[in-house]
């Protein structure tokens, strides 16, 4: 047999055989309280993708404080997609890690935030300290449990809620600062992530009120019993917009860009929105939002743009090293 024939035949066999198998693995790097959401969603997406393309997708999850997770990605964690608590953390990946373009937020609807949430209070059953609104958090003897806003996305939203309430009530940055400082004086321990602060409040029985993601509060009720805790909805809170993005450089390298994009787009589908709603995230789709309206308390929500001029400004002013939070929490 001629050399050329041997070469061509074996090459053809090798390429044909290798082309059959296609198992795809994605890594979704997310923040603390989304564990349950993405367990449900990943299963649904895998089923959808298998039916659509015949390929098997396995999505691995990584969870932690949103800021800490962003740093992990910047430092080399091979995330195909990030689903973080706030846009500033994805911005950090774009700016400091150069792993996706600066305009990432325009690539998906609703500024790449397929669902929203807010901050509510979780108190012990019977609300023994009578906590009804943000003012009550500064009362002497009230223990407030919340995570560290330097590492936790949820905690940043909580901090901004405190500040926003005060600014709206008294119309002064100075008063807002004093009020926020007073609230944080009542914080006995700062966890690094939202799930950690839930553990502190629920399992370690520390404090009187947990400043929690809405979905995290409902999950705590479901898991630990409505006979032990209750949710208190304050008069006003912030509209939290967790954002999602494909980490282009990683996905391109791994050859997973197309499926990673489809994975995030499917969050906006009816099934994706239903799963979000069932996990106590507020869906963007108005029809599905109406269907699950009873799951969510009516609360006056303000946006970060409205009170703080956007994430970039809020991040720099409040959470950068030496920023306002560092100044008021220096104990």
């Amino acid at each position: 047999m001629k050399i050329k024939s041997i070469l061509i035949l074996t090459l053809a066999a090798a390429f044909t055989a290798a082309g059959f198998a296609k198992d795809i693995e994605l890594l979704n790097v997310s923040y603390d309280p989304t564990r349950e959401l993405y367990v449900d969603y990943n299963a649904a997406f895998a089923k959808y993708w298998l039916a659509k393309t015949g390929d098997t997708v396995t999505v691995k999850q990584s969870h932690g404080g949103s800021g800490a997770q962003a740093r992990q990605v910047i430092d080399g964690l091979k995330a195909d997609v990030v689903t973080l608590a706030l846009a500033a953390d994805v911005d950090a990946i774009a700016t400091n890690g150069k792993l996706l373009p600066a305009d990432w937020q325009t690539r998906l609807p609703n500024n790449s935030a397929p669902y929203t949430s807010t901050i509510v209070f979780l108190v012990r059953k019977g609300n023994p300290k009578g906590i009804k609104d943000w003012d009550d958090l500064v009362k002497p003897g009230v223990g407030v449990v919340v995570a560290n806003p330097k590492t936790s996305g949820g905690a940043r939203w909580a901090y901004l809620s405190v500040w926003g309430f005060a600014q709206k009530k008294w119309g002064s940055e100075e008063k807002a600062r004093a009020f926020t400082a007073a609230v944080y004086k009542n914080v006995p321990v700062l966890d690094s992530g939202a799930r950690g602060s839930t553990t502190t409040f629920v399992q370690r029985e520390i404090g009187d009120v947990l400043l929690a993601w809405e979905n995290e509060a409902y999950l705590a009720l479901k898991e630990f019993g409505a006979d032990k805790f209750q949710i208190v909805v304050p008069s006003v809170s912030i509209l939290a917009e967790p954002t999602v993005a494909v980490v282009d450089k990683v996905a391109d390298k791994k050859g997973t860009a197309a499926v990673a994009k489809a994975y995030l787009e499917y969050l906006y589908s009816d099934e994706g929105q239903e799963i979000a709603a069932r996990n106590y995230y507020r869906p963007r789709n108005p029809t599905i939002a109406a269907k699950y309206a009873a799951n969510f308390a009516k609360v006056d929500l303000f946006t970060i743009d409205e009170v703080f001029g956007g994430w970039t400004k809020a991040q720099k002013t409040h959470f950068a090293d030496g920023g306002v939070f560092d100044q008021i929490y220096a104990k």
């Binding site: 223990g143 006995p188 321990v189 966890d191 690094s192 950690g196 502190t200 370690r204 029985e205 520390i206 404090g207």
Partner: peptide
């Protein structure tokens, strides 16, 4: 009890 729990949690963290 709260102080003790806080100290324990701080040590845990």
């Amino acid at each position: 009890d709260q102080k003790l729990k806080i100290l324990e949690r701080k040590q845990e963290l």
